[in-house]
Design a binder for these strands. Structure first.
Length: 561
RNA sequence: UCCGGGAUCGUCUAAUGGCAGGACAGCGGCCUUUGGAGCCGUUAAUUGGGGUUCGAGUCCCUGUCCCGGAGCCA
């Protein structure tokens, strides 16, 4: 079958399956996928992979991808989640056009099909309680037993089912079950529940329904209604595939192919919605969009770009082997992206005052500094230079450790894009002994940062002019969990990293950052990439550290310990 | 224990009977007005045993280990 779509050949097993289907003319060569989130929580980096896969496959084969909310459980679902999910998918860069669907759109059709199965003797109303149902189901190693209700007449089943729908019975008192095989080694086939009675207000259908379809009964039929060809889901649904197929065959309707792949896990974080919800509810993080969260909204606030996330999701490959990607890989893609496009700025996080003794009190000089050495198109900006500056406290050492080549007494270092300076004096607080200020001498021959005699100065320090700098708050983030796999051990909460957030309130940032807007990303030279937070107020910006720069000095210090 | 999956450098992933390759991480070096970036080099793997074959990560047999499954959750 030639639909005019060219590909470079399959790059993973799902593409292989799709291409084989197309060659055989299955589904008329069509590829139609869907992303089916349940609106019961925020999307996270794991979902990003499913989103990229489903939308990506559709685009690649000239097909479509639907957004379908799997909203069959009104007790857990909320519009807040619907809205956040749509925002996040759009932000990631995908478009479902007018195909925004809800499983709840199909409640009527699903109900009619259920009656059809009842009429054909393939479904029955069961009076067993939840607990009895469990007992009758048997165990992993022993077959189940048939419910006493299993052989009711079609008429009785129809009557009971209609009365379930009419709301005549209390919640949990009856279910509709498919009549399959109580002895099946696959527990999903031991007469799975299709409908349960739930007295809850649904976010879309309100109180119209007293019964709600289960996932198994709703999902495949929804796929079928939408003309989906390849229903891609995660590994835990592998055991459900026979049931997915059973319903579709029993109904004799369009039959999509379910394909399972391994979900993506990340080190140093948790991915289950339940655990993320608990972090939010217990106030361990500030909310779903806390920059330490692996949610897309958290990552967005942290400063992650959609491009970096897509790269991470797509270049990781698609397989069935459960895997956990190293957080370092995600960070690599962010740095790779931001290095190319983030404007550079100077920001002093922990200021140390520097007095330039041979610079006049009223001296003001401007330097043109490139916005991005990687990108000449990014232009330059003007940076003011005066007698009193701030440098980073850690760029000065009264007693330099081995291999430290920054500023120390009698040593020379370069102020980025400005002058070479030599430290002449260290001023300390007489009571505490703390260094409060250092006095340095500028070599006036080195304007721009180069010595006419060609002497080499290894260290280049970032700095800001005291009179021009803006006070700022900077939030430094570290891994939410101290260990690679927080799920190890009996208490995952015990693995939390107690210092995952450090708030710096005395920062001084370059004056040009006064024009920054929330959501904008910058590289603070020599430190990392930062994103302006919505908490910012005029005159007092707040920046989140997205990721550090690679830090060779930190590595040296670590190896010296 | 029953059913369904899975196992390749530390991590992720290629190789579809024909040189086990790439990326990240690590290590070493070059370069550098960001100890950044870039460039170069390098360490490192086929779950065990048996078989088929000129040739096996790939096919067969057998063992081991790991993941998922007993919601009226999805």
């Amino acid at each position: 079958m030639d639909t005019g779509v060219e590909t470079a050949g399959p790059s993973h097993f799902i593409e292989e399956i799709i291409e084989k289907d197309r060659e055989q003319g299955r589904y008329g060569g069509r590829v139609h996928t869907r992303f089916p989130p349940e609106p019961n929580g925020y999307l996270h980096i794991g979902h990003a992979k499913a989103i990229c896969l489903n939308f990506g496959l559709a685009a690649q084969y000239g097909g479509k991808c639907n957004l379908r909310f799997d909203d069959t459980n009104p007790t857990k679902e909320e519009v807040e989640y619907v809205d956040s999910i749509k925002t996040d998918i759009r932000w990631l860069g995908f478009d479902w056009e007018d195909r925004e669907y809800y499983a709840s759109d199909y409640f009527g059709q699903l109900y009619d099909w259920a009656e059809q199965l009842i009429r054909e003797g393939k479904a029955y109303v069961d009076d067993l309680s939840a607990e009895e149902t469990r007992e009758y189901r048997g165990t992993l190693t022993e077959p189940g037993r048939e419910s006493p209700c299993r052989n009711r007449s079609v008429e009785e089943n129809l009557d009971l089912f209609r009365r379930m729908k009419a709301g005549e019975f209390p919640e949990g008192s009856r279910t509709l079950r498919a009549k399959i095989d109580m002895a099946s080694p696959n527990l999903n086939l031991r007469d799975p529940v299709m409908y349960r009675i739930l007295r809850a207000t649904h976010h879309r259908t309100g109180d119209e329904w007293a019964i709600y379809p289960t996932y198994d009964w709703a999902h495949g039929q929804s796929d079928s209604i939408e003309g989906v060809t390849h229903s891609i889901c995660t590994l835990e649904f592998e055991d459900h595939r026979p049931l997915y197929n059973w319903f579709l065959e029993a109904l004799g309707i369009h039959h999509p192919r379910q394909v399972e792949f391994a979900r993506l896990n990340l080190t140093h974080t948790v991915m289950s919605k339940r655990k993320l919800l608990e972090l939010v509810r217990r106030g361990i993080v500030r909310g779903w969009d806390d920059p330490r969260m692996p949610t897309l909204s958290g990552m967005r606030r942290r400063g992650y770009t959609p491009e970096a996330i897509r790269e991470f999701a797509e270049r990781g490959g698609v397989a069935k082997r459960p895997s956990t990607a190293d957080l370092a890989l995600l960070e690599y893609y962010l740095r790779e992206d931001l290095n190319r496009r983030a404007p550079r700025r100077m920001a002093v996080l922990r200021p140390l005052k520097v007095l330039l003794t041979n610079v006049p009190e009223d001296h003001l000089e401007e330097f043109e500094v490139p916005n991005n050495p990687e990108d000449p198109e990014a232009g330059t900006r003007s940076v003011p230079f005066t007698r009193t500056l701030y440098i980073e406290r850690e760029d000065f050492a009264e007693v330099p450790p081995p291999k430290f080549f920054r500023l120390s007494p009698g040593k020379e270092a370069r102020l980025r894009a400005a002058y070479l300076i030599t430290c002449r004096e260290v001023i300390k607080d007489p009571d505490t002994g703390e260094i409060v200020e250092i006095h340095c001498e500028v070599d006036p021959e080195t304007r721009g940062g180069n010595a006419p005699d060609g002497r080499k100065v290894k260290a280049t320090l970032h700095w800001v002019s005291e009179a021009h700098a803006i006070p700022a708050e900077v939030r430094l983030y570290d891994n939410l969990f101290a260990v690679e796999d927080p799920n190890e051990g009996e208490d995952w909460m015990a693995n939390l990293n107690p210092s995952s957030l450090e708030i710096l309130t005395a920062c001084r940032v370059e004056g040009s950052l006064g024009e920054a807007r929330p959501g904008e990303r910058y590289q603070f030279e020599r430190q990392g990439y930062f994103c302006m937070d919505p908490d910012s107020e005029s005159g007092r910006p707040v920046f989140n550290r997205s990721v550090t720069l690679k830090d060779a000095w930190a590595k040296i210090q670590k190896s010296q310990k």
